[in-house]
Every structure is written in structure tokens, then in C-alpha cells.
Amino acid sequence: MTTRTLSRMSFATLAVATLALAGCSDSTKESVDDAASAVTSAAAEAGDDAKDAAKDAGDKVKEGAADAKDAAEAAGKKAKDSAEDAHNDTMGTLTSEDVHLHDGFVKAMPAGAGMTAIFGTLENHTDREINLIGFTTSLGAADYEIHEVVDGKMQEKKGGITIKAGGEHVLEPGADHLMILNHDSAIEAGATVDITLKFSDGSKVVVRDVPVRAIAAGEEDYGSDSAHGDHDMDHKHDK
């Protein structure tokens, strides 16, 4: 309520009271009525002002609550990001500068074949021994295993692949390789695949844009039972 409005109400009220006490005549009745109308009008205006003030106050409370909510969400996200960063810091230190897949490639595969492999040379550019224990790819739904060939039979390589400090490990047909299982879609030559290598210290190193190549069928026949020996293709491992 404004000072002007209060003044108008006070003046009009005083006028009504004075005229009433004085026993006003008919000639002054209209003046009394005018004064009364002024009081009523001032009161109405004061009510509108109060409503507006209350609405403004309510809007400010809502805005304050919204700002507080946004601030809380931002703080929560920042805390989550910090926690994830701290978690990553404790989950290993290997980077793409430490581990390379030299001349790596994925063997092309037709739709329905269900399996293929990744070859190349894993290079350890650190001064310590590292242990590859698993991997995934950008191909999506599939099972991923590290394999070896023993006495002509392919099997999962228990314990993964250990690479000495400054050393390398060759992935090739008929020996150790990274196996992609239970993948039904075609993997066509000329495409590229991202590979995430997982190490025993918790590190994950992403090798991007590994090419898909076609190699001679005689080098490794993943579709024959003899190539897999007793390996169970229904295993569900690292998806």
C-alpha cells in the first residue's frame, strides 16, 4: 500500500467523521457521500496494491526456489564428476600413449558367421609389465574373449596376455588373438572399429578406427568345428 493511498484514505475518513459529528444538512450530504466513495475507492486501491505485492513476493519465492534447485543440481553434477574423476584416477594410469596396437585390424565377416578376430601387434611403451585381461568394441552386441591356439585347438587364454616393459606381443592367426563371438551382423572390409583394451590395473585404453580387412580363408577358418576344438560358442563373457 502506497503512502499516497494511505493519505487519501485518512483524509476521506476524517471528512466523513467530521461531517457526521456536525449533523450535516442535506446540502452537505452529497459531500459526505463523495467522501465515503473516496474511502471505498482508496480501500479498493489499497487491496489491489496488497494483492500485487503478495503476487510479486510469491513470484520472487518461486524464482528463488527454482534458482536453488538449479544450484543444487549443478552442485550434484559437479560432485558426481569429481567422484568419477577420482575413481578413474584410482583405476589405472595407462593411456593411448603407453599402449599401441600396431598394424591392427579386424577380420571381415559376413552376416550370420557369428565370429571373427582382431590381429596386430600390442606394444607396451611403459617401463613396467602390463597385463591385458579383456576388451570390447564399438560393434555392439557380442561376446569378447582373448584366445590362444594350443595343439591346433583354439581356447580362451586364461589370465590374459602379459606384455613385458618395453616389449610387444603379436596377435595372429593360429596363435594368440582377440576373439569376437556371437555377433550376427556383417563386418565389412573398409569399415573401422574402435577397440577398448582392458588391463589388470583397471586402465582402459581406446584404440580408434581399427580397419576391417579381408584375409585369406586358409589363414584361419573360424567357421569350422576343427578350428574351435571343444570351445563352447555359447559362452557369455565380457559384453
Rank of each mutant, 00 (worst) to 15 (best):
T196I: 13
A113D: 07
D230H: 07
S96M: 09
A65T: 10
V207M: 11
R4D: 13
A35P: 06
K164P: 12
G112D: 07
A216N: 11
A66R: 05
H228T: 12
A50Y: 03
D230Q: 10
E168G: 13
K60L: 11
A68P: 01
L21G: 13
D34A: 11
S7P: 00
A217K: 05
I187Q: 00
E63C: 09
A22C: 04
A86P: 04
D81Q: 08
K55T: 00
A12Y: 08
D48M: 13
H235M: 11
S203N: 12
V99T: 08
A46E: 02
A54L: 02
A216E: 13
G202P: 04
N182L: 06
E148C: 03
E30F: 09
V16K: 06
D127A: 12
K55G: 00
V106S: 02
G47V: 11
A17S: 09
E168V: 08
V61G: 05
T18H: 12
G112M: 08
K239S: 14
H147R: 02
G47S: 14
H102P: 00
A72E: 01
D81K: 09
D26A: 15
A79G: 07
G174F: 09
D67R: 07
A54Q: 01
L19Q: 12
L6N: 11
V150F: 05
K107N: 09
G76C: 03
D238V: 14
M91D: 14
K164H: 12
M109L: 12
T13N: 05
P211T: 01
G229Q: 02
M109P: 04
A142Q: 03
M1W: 05
N182D: 06
M115P: 00
A46S: 09
I146R: 00
S41F: 02
S200Y: 10
K164E: 14
V32K: 02
Q155R: 13
H235P: 01
L14C: 08
A12N: 07
A111P: 07
H237E: 14
S185R: 02
I130W: 03
H100W: 14
D225K: 15
D127Q: 11
D52F: 05
